[in-house]
Design a protein around this nucleic acid. Structure first.
Length: 989
RNA sequence: GCUUGGGUGGUGGAAUUGGUAGACACGCAGGACUUAAAAUCCUGUGCUUUCACGAGCGUACGGGUUCAAGUCCCGUCCCGAGUACCA
């Protein structure tokens, strides 16, 4: 009987689906195990071979845990709100819901082919109103809450209101906006509805506030910090600007310390934790007030507050710098400086984030003309404006200590400011060239700090600052509040409406607030988000709804909870089920979510816990980042500045022109003008001078071994008017024009391969379907695991796939031998099935290795161990059911279809899926004899065979008595003998 | 710059707590079967040297600890990832 993987895989996939084999039991007495994959965004490119990598690993664990007797929750869904579907809608007018639905169907089809054991009854889609109803509901809970620093948790807003009614806000210790003014209970009661709303807004955990945000004009929306990479948007790569806007935000900063502390309890990789720690960016220091000098300031009693981690260097301050956006800039600028400062500030504000980053080393700034007083010496210190100071961090103002801070040093050098030294370094240092920024050395020129080392000086300085009421010890975080509104269509509507300019949340029974239909998916003419286009979309037909939608991370910040009770209509998930499934035991996904999703999901989990809805503080105990599988894209080069080909000069070369070599050879395209002209890589490589190249990706289906099928490519719409230059000639519109410069060159057009992330735009997506069709799902599963360690990134190639494919064929043959030999006997009868000692040894060694491999998530070595086992059993011509059956159970998490089929062929009526995972018997692993390598001084070696049960003392005795030892020792006694049981004997002479 | 993970044959990669480095697979070479191809099976395969037995060298580089180092320590170089005027 042949191994027909196609039929087998189709058959079992249908049976599993039909019988709902993988349905997770909500009322089981078994221990639970929750394995979760990061759900995919259903893109138009379909699933590529990189997606299943993590899914296969999690599926192996899920199936393994089922064998081990766990009640496994292993769900899947789709993160189906997002930009690509909306961009597509803008271009085509196609409703994003339709595109999304199509993409999901395609994803599902592809996933089904691989034989995953997902419980599809729990599928979630974030764009489904049934789902986002609860996303909106959670938003409202967070909206109706505030962060109480005293209890260190989020509490209901009603508690805050009743406190205001009793005592005003004097005693309230909350995370809130900086500009909240004190008020008494009576004042509170006298506030208008609007005033009350504004005050509460300053406290709410989800709030509407004015802040500098990342504005992306091309996408027409604001973006969170983690959605901006290198000054451009993560999606699409459009430039991003800083803009002051009124925005919905979430006070994630309130959780900074808890997000930091929680990391210590998690079983995540150190690098991922470190990434989060850096992102949160805790730094401890002190705030410090510099009062403003001069008559004007005295009238207003004004001061500049700075944040510093180096209060010890206070006597080294030679100027103070404000961020251009700092609110005091305008007030402090003297009339003489007004024009120049205003000019500078305007320019700085208009620079995009990208420009600003590109000019990091360009030092710019202007003096305001006014001064502050040094808090201790009273000396006048000039105030400058400089864009190296960020408005968003600390107080937006710094005390500059040029001798001991690199950036201040550069600034001071550039503008010829003083550089007073206050620390004597403990190493040689040139203060002319560099700042001494190390936290080492002894304080000098610093009055009461003199003679102290840096650490002691910091402590003493803070004490003194606090004593004189100039500031206080403070912890600063780099983490910013998360911007929550997006001026886009394809997202969850924020369930807020405005009455008399006051925002109100919808009540629970008014949810979901369904995304309205619009005529176009673009902003309105006056710049309102697309939702403003919706006709008659008003709360109670009267009050305007909020027009921005939620960001992509909203739906994914709680989906792991919804899976626990995915179809519940009355709550987001039943309390009992939340308690039973608790948290995710194993979470697998890409590390690109380290500072986005993985921070937000932890934030929402903590918020929901504080509000009493769930009992867990962290969403996922163990997390594995699967590496990215990159694809090989093929590029062709055009409009290179080609001047010579092997010494032959080209007169004219650019697109649209014919190509004329100086020696008269001509590629004449019948006087037609190609749109683009592409050059084979060997043409480029033969040039005498370096070239500037522009490249275009071509679909890898047109390329084989980096040789382009020009004929086929020329048939596509995009390239039908392009010319292709070979070494041997040129091709244009299906016609080939030969030149005789390289008459012996083959007619091959060479492309440039490049390893890149798989994406539709790069035409380098390899679909798992192709592999399934050619080799089968089991081979795909094994091969992806065999490629290398799960966490590691690796380029996709199918070079080694015949190895695993051959392994499955061997396994099939081995099983067929067994089935033939035992065909008559039903599973219960053991006649003629006595496995030999050698066979049992192989089996039990494999059981041991595989169990260890899975427990440390070393999937690649387990595949190797399967191969070794099957090879050895084949050599022994093993045909024993008692060996084959445990082996099949071992392999079944990895290759579920073939094992299920063989299990069935062996006469079992039940599925292999819940069979008990075999346990190794150490008895079979004890070998009667063991070969010890014996070495002298680690040099001369010989092997000696001894029983493995011997004690080290016995081994030592026998080894020393051996003739080889005697010969080497020449009668002398050895200095030392080391016996490592079952490993080595080492004799030091 | 800082943080972090790495550097092992022609290639992907193995190597629990220091204990025969290179498992397993690909590739390559040779052979068997076949009219032939595919498939399958067998043998060899780190490098240098030798007809061969063997010998020498080998885990980025330089030191060190140890009877024994890919593994531990110190220094250097290189690569990937994250982050970056964060005061």
């Amino acid at each position: 009987m042949e191994y027909h993987f196609k039929e087998i895989e189709k058959k079992w996939q249908a049976i599993w689906k039909d019988k709902k084999t993988f349905k997770a039991d909500d009322a089981s007495t078994k221990p639970k195990y929750y394995v979760l994959d990061m759900f995919p965004y259903p893109s138009g490119a379909g699933l590529h071979v990189g997606h299943p990598l993590g899914y296969i690993a999690s599926d192996i664990i899920a199936r393994y845990k089922r064998h081990k007797g766990f009640n496994v929750l292993h769900p899947m869904g789709y993160d189906s709100f997002g930009l690509p579907a909306e961009q597509y809608a803008i271009q085509t007018g196609q409703h994003p819901a339709i595109t999304t639905e199509q993409n999901i169907n395609r994803y599902r089809e592809q996933l089904d082919k691989i034989g995953f054991s997902f419980d599809w009854d729990r599928e979630v889609r974030t764009s489904n109103p049934e789902y986002y109803k609860w996303t909106q509901w959670i938003f409202i809970q967070i909206f109706n809450s505030w962060y109480n620093k005293t209890s260190d948790k989020t509490e209901k807003i009603e508690l805050l209101i009743s406190e205001f009614e009793k005592n005003g806000n004097a005693k309230v210790n909350a995370v809130c906006d900086d500009n909240v003014k004190l008020f008494s209970a009576d004042e509170w009661k006298a506030f208008s509805e609007k005033e009350k709303s504004d005050v509460l807004m300053a406290y709410r955990t989800a709030y509407l506030g004015e802040a500098y945000v990342n504005w992306c004009p091309a996408l027409g929306t604001v973006l969170a910090n983690d959605e901006v990479k290198d000054g451009v948007s993560e999606r699409g790569g459009h430039p991003v600007e800083r803009k002051l806007m009124k925005q919905w935000s979430m006070r994630i900063t309130a959780y900074a310390q808890r997000l930091l502390n929680g990391l210590d309890t998690l079983d995540w990789t150190e690098s991922l934790k470190e990434t989060q720690r850096n992102w949160i960016g805790k730094s401890e220091g002190t705030s410090l007030k510099f009062s403003i000098a001069g008559p004007e300031a005295e009238r207003h009693e004004q001061y500049i507050e700075v944040f510093t981690t180096r209060p010890d260097t206070i006597f080294g301050v030679s100027f103070v710098t404000l961020a251009p956006e700092h609110e005091l800039v305008a007030k402090l600028t003297t009339p003489e400086q007004k024009a120049i400062v205003e000019d500078y500030v305007t320019k700085a504000k208009n620079r995009s984030e990208r420009e600003r980053q590109a000019d990091v080393n360009k030092i710019t700034g202007v003096p305001t003309g006014s001064f502050v007083k040094h808090p201790f010496t009273g000396k006048q210190i000039p105030i400058w404006v400089g864009d190296y100071v960020l408005a968003g961090y600390g107080t937006g103002a710094v005390m500059a200590v040029p001798a001991h801070d690199e950036r201040d040093f550069k600034f001071a050098k550039h503008f010829g400011l003083q550089l007073p030294q206050v620390i004597e370094p403990n190493r040689e240092h040139d203060f002319e060239k560099d700042a001494w920024g190390d936290k080492e050395g002894t304080l000098i020129n610093s009055e009461f700090l003199n003679g102290l080392d840096v650490k002691a000086a910091i402590k003493k300085a803070i004490e003194e600052i606090e004593k004189q009421n100039l500031g206080k010890g403070k912890t600063n975080f780099r983490l910013r509040d998360a911007v929550f509104g997006r001026q886009r269509y394809w997202g969850e509507p924020i369930p807020i409406y405005y009455k008399n300019d006051i925002p109100y949340a919808l009540s629970e029974n008014e949810l979901p607030l369904v995304l309205p239909e619009v005529d176009k998916y673009l902003p309105t003419e006056d710049g309102e988000p697309p939702l403003a286009r919706a006709n008659n979309w008003k709360y109670k037909n009267e009050f305007a709804y909020e027009h921005s939608t939620m960001p992509g991370w909203a739906g994914s910040s709680w989906y792991f909870l919804r899976y626990m009770d995915a179809n519940n209509k009355s709550v987001f998930a039943d309390k009992k089920l939340l308690g039973y499934w608790n948290n995710v035991d194993l979470y697998i996904g890409g590390s690109e979510h380290a500072t986005g999703h993985l921070l937000y999901v932890r934030f929402w989990t903590k918020a929901l816990k504080d509000l009493g809805f769930i009992d867990i503080e962290e969403p996922a105990q163990k997390l594995i980042n699967q590496g990215m599988i990159t694809g090989t894209s093929e590029k062709i080069i055009f409009e290179g500045k080609i001047e010579k080909i092997d010494g032959v000069e080209i007169e004219s070369f650019s697109s649209g022109n014919n190509i004329i070599f100086k020696n008269g050879k001509l590629f004449s395209f019948s006087n037609e003008c190609p749109e683009d002209t592409f050059y084979s890589l060997d043409v480029i490589e033969h040039l005498a001078i370096p070239i500037n190249t522009r490249e275009k990706n071509v679909n890898i289906s047109f390329v084989k071994n980096s040789i382009l099928d020009v004929e086929k490519l020329s048939e596509t719409a995009e390239f039908k008017n392009s010319a292709f230059i070979f070494k041997a000639g040129a091709s244009y519109k299906g016609k080939f024009y030969k030149n005789d410069i390289f008459p012996n060159e083959p007619l091959e057009f060479k492309t440039r391969p490049d390893v890149e992330k798989m994406s539709k735009s790069k035409f380098n997506v390899v679909s798992p379907d192709d592999i399934c069709d050619k080799f089968g799902a089991d081979t795909l599963r094994l091969y992806e695991m065999f490629l290398g360690p799960l966490e590691q990134s690796k380029p996709w190639n199918t070079n080694g796939i015949t190895g695993v494919s051959g392994f499955l064929k061997k396994l099939w043959r081995l099983a067929m031998q067994t089935i033939e030999a035992q065909s008559a006997a039903p599973p219960s009868e053991k006649a003629g099935d006595e496995a030999s000692k050698a066979e049992l040894k192989i089996l039990h060694a494999t059981i041991k290795k595989i169990t260890e491999d899975i427990d440390r998530f070393s999937f690649n070595t387990s595949v190797s161990n399967f191969m070794i086992c099957v090879n050895e059993l084949t050599d022994l011509k093993c045909n024993k059911r008692s060996v084959l059956e445990p082996l099949l159970i071992l392999i079944s998490p990895y290759a579920p279809h073939i094992t299920e089929e063989l299990w069935n062929l062996l006469g079992h009526k039940d599925s292999i899926i819940f069979e008990k995972f075999p346990v190794f018997n150490p008895e079979y692993l004890i070998e009667s004899n063991f070969t010890y390598p014996v070495s002298f001084n680690g040099k001369m070696r010989f092997n000696i065979e001894l029983p493995v049960t011997m004690t080290p003392a016995e081994i030592e005795k026998i080894v020393l008595a051996h003739e080889s030892s005697q010969k080497y020792l020449e009668g002398k006694a050895p200095k030392k003998v080391i016996v490592v049981p079952k490993k080595i004997v080492n004799i030091v002479v």
